[in-house]
Design a protein around this nucleic acid. Structure first.
Length: 876
RNA sequence: GCGAGAGUGGCGGAACUGGCAGACGCGCGAGACUUAGGAUCUCGUGGGCAACCGUGGGGGUUCAAAUCCCCCCUCUCGCACCA
């Protein structure tokens, strides 16, 4: 009797073996097709969480599967190691961010190894290592040289809690994406990456990313927000100082005859130039002050009331030659278009509300086809512009359909030199300066004589000083490190200052997938041959939360790097799988709020009680809350370390793969973990039994044995087919595992069938095939058990290197089929037919079925529908 | 408001292009083996006594609808004044 399934010993054994034998180390091999399988690298927060387990289990199944399918698989892992938590740890606990981070990495590396993931650990990288971030600096300089990195003073998002600038992508609903504090606006001089230069390509190339979820592509498309329109100049009625005209951007030039006023953004410098010296100046300035003091979240809320104030200045609508008033309005965005708009109340809901409030004329210039709109009785703006709508009261353009009018009016504006066609994007340039320590130093030097000077390439990396004073207050910590700040100007040699801001950590993750191809390159960022061989990433797997941020930045960087001539790669990620979240139910105590699972007393059936309340003799009500994403704040977290220690990595993997398809949210379930564990034990016992049975003496050929052998082989090959299809078709790992379970259930039946005296030759062969196949099919999912069983079957080489089994179609097909018989579409009976029976044979056999006759009640069927090998339906 | 996705047993979830609804697992029930079992194995398990009824609700197309069409409801996620 073979020993029992001891996950602890067995998993340690195989993890050590894989490491010793360098099983998953890969190099470029032109003879083999490559497959680059990548999971988003983690931030080294301290411990892995269930989201990591799920992400990496999914990736590992795919990597191991592709490997068995004969691909040369690149499957690397590393650490997104710069970031704020390290700095916070330094402030709170007086440890160095570097040691905190490196200790976390060491610990988490151990945890990942315990999961048995097929990484090529020789390629491990960490973004906080100078070997890595020096290339961030190098890219920065290259981008600066090409005008893609530039400095400008502007209002930026400022998180008062993190004390740093945030990119637009990092502000969620007016709050900091990391700490949730309300983000305010601040005027600062900052470095930007000119991502807008790639807006058009980033947008257009989305169409080619057919391996991405549509949802993500739509989100990016929307984020880039391309709008086609016209920039039109509205002359002032009387020049105001040096201002003679106001330029506006509109996509609705067809409504220009209905423009009855204009609005400026409160931040626009035009405002002051228009109002200076006017009686309205005081009121306008007061309004601008008031609006600018509001925080962004309040100001940009959708239901925010439209407000404004008249500047006292007037413009001329160049199409109607009418005088129209110029207002300042709180809803006009300074950063978009020209920061000024023409306002058409009849055809823009915001302008409508504004005009109604301030008694500004509303002029209907687009009539709907039924001509039902009455200018004096409009209840809202008529914004329809696709299907219907015809111009009225629009001079020579009256009568045109909206779509044509847009073209004709744009043409007219261009020939009269009052406007030009224009494309605008919602996308803004990427602000990358961060007033924090634990990031890549921006390699720039400020010299009083020479201005901004990049650090020369041969002086890279600009090393991050190891020990700096942290207070958590004030500006960049690096600014307080004299030895860092003070330097010589590379151009003239005089005293100069270093930039003390660091780069956004999203820079680090924008090209790490390229670095994995040649992680040990000393003299260049990327090894051209390695990158040419491995890129692009064939399958990228990670959370949906990066749909815009990381995935857009990485696409941008890839294009910049291509344009630097370093690669020929247009898009980094061919296929993207956004896995769902790991969720768990929550519990709330009426006194203590959220409760950890181990604070619960009682049971689901008898009701839960609050442990802390019990202990102190208090009374409280515990309610089961919603199922939510695991989070510390909701206290519904499960530590994977405990899971792996108790059940083993294979069970942890099986559970997270079986409980839900990868794209959907996965709900934690203790019972589900038990189930996964039970299955692996069941496989183990089955294999022990099978190994024993096939080693018994064979009793030669016989009829029954031959028939049984055919059944076993059919089951085996059907399972191969099903599992293979499920993995290939949208990563249906849950149903693939279900098929393995059916396989195991079927084999249990077979082993239970009499074998006391031995089995026939054919049966033994079929059982051996079944046993081998089961182990091979299981290998990507539960690799440790699979290795052990593979060894038990007498093999020497790793199961990870075995070819994936192929289903034989001839063996898959059944000899007999069960055909459902329907009457009027309702299931009434079943018959068994031979697989090669013709339609006539099946129908006549069905008609002979007594149960059918009962349902037909003597009536003759009006029609008989036969679906090949599927069913027969009698219509009466 | 706009955009995307989802509503199927007690629960997680199956069902490829319309063709046996509920695979597989959990839970539950019964039995077997056991000193014992919360281990293991076997069988059963949508509802209803039945005819029948059942995939969020209501219509429709079809011999046949979870699947296609129309209307409605609920939930989740994303974007939220971009002119």
């Amino acid at each position: 009797m073979t020993r029992s399934y001891d996950h602890r010993a067995l998993e340690a054994k195989w993890q050590a073996r894989w490491a010793r034998d360098h099983t998953f180390q890969v190099r470029e091999d032109p003879a083999k097709p490559k497959f680059y399988c990548l999971e988003m690298f983690p931030y080294p927060s301290g411990r892995i969480h269930m989201g990591h387990v799920r992400n990496y289990a999914i990736g590992d199944v795919l990597a191991r599967y592709k490997r068995m399918r004969g691909f040369n698989v690149l499957h690397p892992m590393g650490w997104d190691a710069f970031g704020l938590p390290a700095e916070n740890a330094a402030i709170e606990r007086a440890v160095l961010p570097s040691s905190w981070t490196n200790e976390n990495i060491a610990y988490m590396r151990g945890q990942l190894r315990q999961m048995g993931l097929s990484y090529d650990w020789t390629r491990e990288l960490s973004t906080c290592s100078a070997d890595y971030y020096r290339w961030n600096q190098w890219f920065f300089i290259k981008m600066y040289e090409r005008g893609l990195a530039y400095r400008k003073r502007s209002a930026v998002n400022w998180c008062p809690s993190c004390e740093t600038v945030l990119a637009n992508e990092q502000v969620e609903d007016g709050h900091c994406w990391r700490c949730d504090a309300v983000v305010i606006q601040k005027e600062l001089e900052q470095w930007f990456f000119k991502i807008t230069q790639y807006a058009e390509e980033l947008l257009n190339a989305l169409d080619s990313l057919t391996g991405w979820p549509e949802r993500v592509r739509i989100m990016q498309r929307h984020w880039i927000g391309r709008s086609v329109g016209v920039e039109v100049s509205f002359p002032l009625a009387e020049p105001s100082g040096d201002v003679t005209a106001i330029r506006i951007f509109t996509t609705r030039q067809d409504t220009i005859f209905g423009a009855t006023f204009m609005s400026l953004a409160p931040e626009s410098p035009l405002v002051e130039r228009l109002v200076a010296g006017r009686p309205e100046a005081g009121a306008v300035r007061e309004f601008v002050q008031r609006v600018s003091r509001q925080d962004r979240a309040v100001r940009t809320a959708a239901d925010r009331e439209k407000e404004g104030v008249f500047t006292g200045a007037w413009a001329i609508n160049p199409f109607t030659n009418e005088r129209i008033p110029i207002w300042v309005a709180n809803f006009v965005l300074y950063e978009y278009g020209t920061g000024a708009i023409m306002a058409v109340p009849a055809h823009d809901q915001r302008d409508f509300e504004f005009a109604t409030k301030y008694g500004i004329p509303i002029r209907l210039v687009i009539q709907n086809p039924e001509a039902t709109l009455n200018e004096r009785a409009l209840e809202g703006a008529y914004e329809e512009q696709e299907a219907a709508g015809r111009l009225v009261s629009s001079g020579k353009f009256s009568g045109l359909w909206v779509r044509e009018a847009k073209e004709r009016i744009a043409d007219f504006a261009e020939t009269k030199h009052i406007g030009t066609r224009m494309v605008n994007y919602r996308l803004r340039d990427w602000g990358v300066s961060r007033q924090r320590y634990w990031g890549t130093p921006i390699p720039m030097i400020y010299c009083d004589g020479c201005g901004v000077v990049p650090v020369p390439e041969d002086q890279l990396p600009v090393l991050l000083p190891a020990d700096v004073p942290f207070t958590g207050k004030g500006a960049s910590p690096l600014a307080r490190v004299k030895e860092f700040v003070e330097t010589a100007c590379p151009a003239c040699g005089t005293r100069a200052r270093r930039e003390t801001d660091t780069m956004d950590t999203f820079v680090d993750s924008s090209w790490y997938f390229l670095r994995y191809c040649s992680p040990h390159e000393k003299t260049q960022a990327l090894g051209p041959a390695a990158v040419a061989y491995w890129m692009a990433v064939d399958q990228y797997i990670g959370g949906i939360e990066h749909a815009v941020l990381h995935l857009l930045y990485a696409r941008f960087f890839t294009k910049v790097i291509r344009d630097l001539g370093l690669t020929k790669v247009d898009e980094p990620f061919l296929n993207l799988l956004t896995q769902g979240m790991v969720c768990k139910e929550t519990y709330q105590c009426s006194r203590h709020g959220w409760l950890f699972p181990n604070e619960l007393v009682g049971s689901e059936k008898d009701g839960w009680r609050c442990g802390p309340c019990r202990a102190t003799g208090l009374d409280s009500i515990v309610e089961r809350g919603r199922v939510e994403k695991m989070s510390k704040s909701k206290k519904n977290i499960v530590d994977p370390e405990h899971l792996i220690a108790t059940y083993g990595a294979d069970t942890a993997r099986m559970f997270s793969l079986f409980a839900a398809p990868p794209q959907k949210d996965l709900e934690w379930s203790d019972a589900g973990v038990e189930g996964a564990s039970r299955f692996l034990h069941r496989v183990w016992r089955l294999m022990v039994e099978l190994a024993e049975q096939v080693s018994r003496r064979e009793i030669g050929a016989d009829e029954v044995g031959a028939a049984r052998a055919r059944e076993i082989r059919r089951l085996t090959h059907r399972t191969i087919q099903k599992v293979t299809e499920d993995i290939d078709r949208e990563f249906q790992f849950n149903t693939a595992i279900a098929a393995l379970m059916e396989f195991v259930n079927g084999l249990y039946k077979v082993t239970a069938e009499g074998s006391k005296g031995g089995r026939s030759d054919e049966e033994t062969v079929a059982l051996r095939e079944a046993a081998t196949t089961l182990v091979l099919l299981l290998a990507p999912f539960a690799p440790h058990v699979a290795e052990e069983l593979w060894e038990m079957l007498g093999a020497r080489a790793s199961v990870a290197d075995q070819p994936w089994p192929a289903a034989d179609p001839a063996l898959v097909a059944s000899e007999r089929l069960t055909i459902p018989i329907q009457v009027n579409g309702k299931l009434r009976s079943r018959i068994e037919v031979s697989a090669d029976a013709t339609q006539d044979q099946v129908v006549s056999q069905a008609q002979g079925d007594p149960r059918l006759q009962e349902w037909l009640g003597g009536k003759k069927p009006r029609k008989v529908i036969y679906v090949q090998k599927k069913l027969v339906n009698f219509v009466v």
